[in-house]
Design a protein around this nucleic acid. Sequence first.
RNA 1: GCGCCUGUAGCUCAAUCGGAUAGAGCAACAGCCUUCUAAGCUGUAGGUUGCUGGUUCGAUUCCAGCCAGGCGCACCA
Length: 575
Amino acid sequence: MKTVLLKWIEFVVKKAQEAGRLTDAPCLEIPLETPKKEGHGDFATTLPLILAKVEGRPPREIATQLAEQLNNLALRESFEEANRLKDGSPLPSFEKIEIAGPGYINFFLTKASWHQELINILRADKNYGRTSEGEGKKVQIEFVSANPTGPLHVAHGRAAALGDALARLLKSVGYQVDREYYINDVGGQMDLLGKSTYLRYRELYGEEINLPEEGYQGDYIIEIARAVRGEESDRYMYGPAESHLPFFTRYSYETILGWIRRDLKTFRVHFDTWTPEAEIHQENKIDAALKLLESKKVLFEDEGALWVKTTAYGDDKDRVVRRRNQKLTYFAADIAYHREKFERGYDRLINIWGADHHGYIARIKAVVEAMGYAPKRLQILIHQLVNLLRDGKQVKMSKRSGEFITLRDVVEEVGVDATRFFFLMRRSDTSLDFDLELAKKATNENPVFYVQYAHARVCSIERVAKDRDWDIEDVVHNITMEELALLALPEEQALIKQASRYPDLALSAAEALEPHRMTFYLQELAGMLHRFYFGHRIIIEDAALTKARLVLMRAIRIVLHNGLDLLGISAPEQM
RNA sequence: GCGCCUGUAGCUCAAUCGGAUAGAGCAACAGCCUUCUAAGCUGUAGGUUGCUGGUUCGAUUCCAGCCAGGCGCACCA
């Protein structure tokens, strides 16, 4: 609806420019919003206010002139002629076009236009809201990527929900999306993990142990040690530790990665690719990346270490890629990893990182640019950490001390749907309070139920209608514009309008990488549905009106379903 | 000290790339179930958008400087 209207305005502006009524100033983007106030029409543009400066004329004068052209029937015909070829939806008919305030143009659409949109929703059904703006470009989203040294905790859950919702959103607007998990299976942390398990294992045999300060303290390490004892008995009690540690490292790593995979699966987050850092270290991938940097003349040696001059690209200090002891840094692998991602043919890369990694952005962007990739192609989304509360009191969590609440704990208590919705309700760059007690309540304080209940409610209405011998599918597929004309109440109009905003909302949420907009939208739509339900009966004596309202309900159901689906949340038919 | 993020109703948060009178939920108070699901609905109340300037027709939004909070500033990953 909005898209076609935008095209129409664009068309009129272009014609005006051709006719010399407007200067040829390149009009970047035409603003078109849905006003908050009823009296301001269905859509409004501030275009005249923007043009006023370039034109050197009062905005109202420009508005008057544009409005005249927007009402011009001959122009309209030629637009429709041009547009028909591109399978555009029909241009809505206008009740009136009005000039208001300092120079707004307000569009009032006829009721019939809105009824037509209802039919569009029903026809598109599960595809309603899907667009092709992404033009099939390839996007990769790398997220979670938690170190395999412990179970996923709550903040990882936020990243998982965010990345998955973004993937769904981008896919729905026409991108080809891959989800990727980068496994940091290299480095001192892995040795420490193996050592921690080994010590716990010895402890099981009665030995007094001293876990190193930096070691992993969590009970899950003991759990892994027990598993080793179960499978291997006491064979690792003998001989030097050094010869056993690799086994313990690998065993712990595999066990934990198994947990991570399992928990993500439970959370309904699927990854297309799991890339171990170790893989990057093989096959000379790092050498190749460093050679590329060398050819760009950004590598230099100092004090026996190899550095990359990231300050040349906006970083605040240069970074080491090979230490004095000749070991490569994590950063070196990350450079090679990003190079590989670009070489795999992605148009866009999106990394989702926790706020504690934000200091890393400048250097990775610098190095990407240094390698010759447009820095715009890499977007890094930072999500602030999660404040876990219990009864309003902060729970301090630290993987090292072993005191934390896992994603799994939360999902088991609260459920996948509620957990995902909670994580997605807030903008990612604000910190998130997650009160376990509150979330566990799962009552009406939890907004996911509000939205799901709206969907279930429509389904319930349809069940009752069927009991009373309504053939819903027949009604939905064979409704006519004449029958829909019975939907004349302001509440009905408002519901249709809100539902029609859905495609535009999905698009803007995807473009802004802000899934939280969808949660707010759905709450609004659900609220309108509940209010309508309370004020009006759907199935009534008047068969014609019943028919029209059943169609309206179905349209709302479709939008609620599709919206929840974009968030990876189920739309139950019964609650 | 430097950098990034955030300051909006008592609390948690929105606000459509700068638009018209800044909106929801929770908490509080008063109501609504013989009806298609009360996990719902109706009503009341709540604001100098952290502070001070600037940019312009117009600022919660952009810029500068303060104030407060969070996070980061490794030849760790």
